[in-house]
């Protein structure tokens, strides 16, 4: 399988021009294998963790707000742009031809603006670090991985608002998205828009090659990640989370089952309490809330 494409530049020097589209298939297959593998694992082999009885330590309303209106709007808008970007990027590669360039870059700009909004919003209105992976989370990850490997039924640790896997996913998506966005913004220099004419000599040809390779790599990684994300979103045991991204709330039981009230303290975050039974909950973010 080819990973990178090179071509002789006008002076006969071999330069990178992009990723080989074989990678797209590899990414899709990786996503598929993960989905099938995970499903089989859960279905056949996964040890059932004993359900921990939630002990209400405080007054918990019937419905706990998990995602604010703004967060949910952000998430779905971002999902739409991301899908648009992936479809416009990869459908032509697999042979579905249409005029994709303008849609693609406009969607790219929308995504960029959304993410800028998200960063500002998260850093001003939310607990910015609540979804980031720190040393503690990494330690937990190692423990979980160890248990998984030993096939020990891990007692499901109740987490803070964002459990480890969500945090890890968020971090990975952040990295990859920033990769496509930064390279994509650079690539905007190479297309004609209503505001400027293309200037292909903005970067040297070998630098362009690198930019295209990064954009392509991040793009195909996103394919795998989106497959995984959608998969988890529709898994039965995760549907309560999907629902929360649509409706905004989780039930009291779900809260107590999955979250450690010490780590996700209701009513401590600066946010607008919009829900009826909601003590002040997060007006939270982050598009990507999978597993």
């Amino acid at each position: 399988m080819e990973i990178l494409r090179t071509a002789p530049n006008p002076w006969g020097q071999e330069v990178l021009v992009g990723v080989a589209w074989d990678l797209l298939w590899a990414a899709a297959i990786a996503g598929f294998v993960f989905v099938v593998g995970h499903h089989l694992y859960v279905w056949i082999m996964a040890p059932k963790a004993p359900k921990t009885a939630p002990e209400p330590a405080q007054e918990v309303p019937e419905r706990v707000e998990r995602h604010s209106q703004a967060s949910r709007t952000f998430h779905w808008l971002m999902a739409a742009t991301m899908l648009t970007l992936l479809v416009t990027a990869f459908f032509p590669v697999i042979g579905v031809q249409f005029a994709w360039v303008t849609i693609h870059w406009i969607a790219g700009i929308v995504l960029t603006l959304l993410i800028i909004w998200h960063i500002i919003h998260a850093s001003t209105k939310q607990d910015f670090w609540s979804v980031w992976t720190g040393a503690k989370e990494i330690g937990q990850a190692f423990q979980a991985a160890g248990k998984f490997l030993r096939r020990q039924p891990a007692k499901e640790e109740r987490s803070g608002k964002y459990p480890l896997d969500q945090r890890a996913y968020h971090n990975a998506v952040t990295l990859v998205s920033l990769g496509v966005i930064v390279t994509g913004i650079l690539m905007m220099v190479g297309v004609d828009t209503w505001f400027w004419a293309s200037n292909p000599y903005f970067l040297s040809d070998s630098t362009w090659g690198l930019v295209f390779v990064l954009h392509g790599l991040c793009g195909v990684v996103l394919v795998t990640m989106v497959i995984a994300h959608v998969y988890f979103a529709i898994r039965p045991e995760k549907r309560w989370m999907t629902r929360s991204m649509i409706k905004g709330w989780i039930t009291r039981e779900e809260y107590l089952e999955h979250y450690d009230p010490d780590l996700w303290k209701l009513g401590t975050e600066p946010a607008g309490a919009e829900l009826a039974g909601g003590s002040a909950s997060s007006a939270d973010p982050d598009g990507v809330v999978p597993a």
Partner: peptide, 9 residues
């Protein structure tokens, strides 16, 4: 198959 239109600069 590359990334530049050399004729459009």
């Amino acid at each position: 198959g590359g990334n530049i239109c050399y004729a459009g600069t």
